[in-house]
Amino acid sequence: MDHEHGLRRLIRRARRALRDRTSRWLARLAATPTPCHAPLPCPTRILVCRVNKRLGNTVLLTPLLQSLAATFPQARIDVLVQGRYNGVLLENLPGVNRVHEVPTEPWPLLRRLVPLIRHLRRQRYDLAIDPNNHSSSNRLAMAVSGARYRLGFAAADQWLKLTHAAAFPDHEPHTGLQPLYLLAAITGTPVHRIKTTAVGLTDHQRSRAHNRLQASLGAAADGPLIGFFAEATGGKQLPGDWWQAWCTAVQEQAPDATLVQIVRPGGPALAPTATPVGTSDLGELAAIIEQMDGFIAADSGPMHLASATGVPVLGLFQATPPERFAPLGELCCAITTPVEPAAAARMLLALRKQTDELLRRQG
């Protein structure tokens, strides 16, 4: 397993080095090395290009989408993502009109790419946005979109000629908040920067989630529902015995709590005291997590998904910096590991109590 992870790291490093070298070479032909600001007439058709299939990256795009909708309420916002699963999380957000999906498999990609490009160009977008500072896929998508104006970050390796460019905000480390600084390059009016993630859930998704959760739990749970996701990629994942000890600690500290483990469909429970719940429908999964009273996970897509639903979240970080990837939400907290399972249980339960007190004051 360690050998497999090491090979994957080498492949990622090689791909990153090739991408950086190619970008620097292309930047010699046509580059946008310095910021260029100019107020735009209020755009009515906007395309946001985030050609990536990772769940966390999709959720971390939502602060920008919400900020765009608040800053340009008359605009129709389309989003270009990769894969056919993540788009369901964005399509019901305020201001979002449609989510276009780039296939991940080679044959559907070749078969559908030309029709997709034609469709994008027929939309006659006023503005295309690349929210990332190093994505060649995003830049290619903007280049072929046919948008009248193109907005992104200025950089020495920014090989796409942009009409509007912002300086990369080195003072803002968080990946989900950096794109918000793009908006100042296109408007002279105050920018509405929304710094929390969100997902657009329907009543139908919530109803299905409620039914699935009740079917999994059997009898109605009287106490709080505490959710957790024990998986993560590479060095971000905590060992199984840590999670088992954490489950034991929660049951000792909150005997009335019901533990719900979010798993891949059909996956087993990590501990006998936990009820496994899983679905491949991300909208339904978000609606399931929304019913939790608290949620804990390592740095992963479900961690960000939980924060986007408004659930109190405790994020565990051991291989990635929390200042870049912490869950964004008023009820969220990120800690670095190692941390004792009992201490993590106390933190999450305390976070839940703080939330209950806040809701009582507001109510």
Rank of each mutant, 00 (worst) to 15 (best):
V313S: 01
L358G: 03
A167T: 13
K161M: 10
N211F: 14
Q362R: 14
W159D: 10
Q178M: 04
S137R: 13
A75V: 08
R28E: 13
L93V: 06
H164R: 15
H3G: 09
H174Q: 10
N92S: 12
Y85E: 15
D170Q: 12
T275E: 06
A220M: 12
Y149D: 15
G283W: 11
P302Q: 02
V250Y: 01
G176W: 01
A297V: 08
H204G: 13
E101W: 00
P338S: 12
M347W: 11
A287K: 01
A319R: 04
V96L: 01
C247A: 10
R98L: 10
A31D: 07
M1Y: 10
Q318G: 13
R84M: 02
A249N: 04
F317P: 08
A249P: 00
I46D: 03
R76Q: 14
A75C: 07
P322G: 08
P321S: 14
P276M: 11
S207F: 12
G83Q: 02
V311S: 08
G227V: 00
T337L: 15
Q158W: 06
I117E: 04
S23R: 15
N138F: 02
A342K: 06
A274C: 13
I46H: 04
L359N: 14
Q354C: 09
Q291T: 06
T58R: 01
A147C: 07
A31K: 00
A254L: 06
D299W: 03
L65F: 06
M142P: 01
R264K: 14
C36G: 12
L18P: 09
G315H: 02
D157I: 05
L110F: 12
V102W: 03
R212W: 09
H119V: 02
P255V: 11
I186S: 04
R15M: 06
G87Q: 04
V144I: 15
A257D: 01
K236P: 00
D356V: 13
H134G: 07
L217Q: 07
A254T: 07
L65Q: 03
A165L: 08
V260K: 00
L55P: 05
R12C: 04
L259I: 10
D2T: 15
L180F: 03
I289N: 05
V114S: 12
A184N: 12
Q291H: 08
A274T: 10
A286G: 04
T248A: 15
R16G: 13
A326Y: 07
E290V: 00
G315L: 01
T275D: 02
Y85S: 14
A147S: 11
R19M: 00
I289R: 09
V260T: 00
L162K: 10
F72T: 07
L26R: 13
Q291S: 12
C42L: 07
W159Y: 15
H171M: 14
E323T: 12
T197N: 04
G301A: 11
A154P: 02
L316D: 05
A345H: 08
T22C: 08
R16C: 07
H134Y: 09
A167C: 06
R24N: 12
A38E: 13
T22F: 09
D256A: 15
P322E: 01
R13D: 12
W159Q: 03
A350Y: 02
I262A: 06
L113G: 09
L127S: 07
V277A: 05
L259M: 01
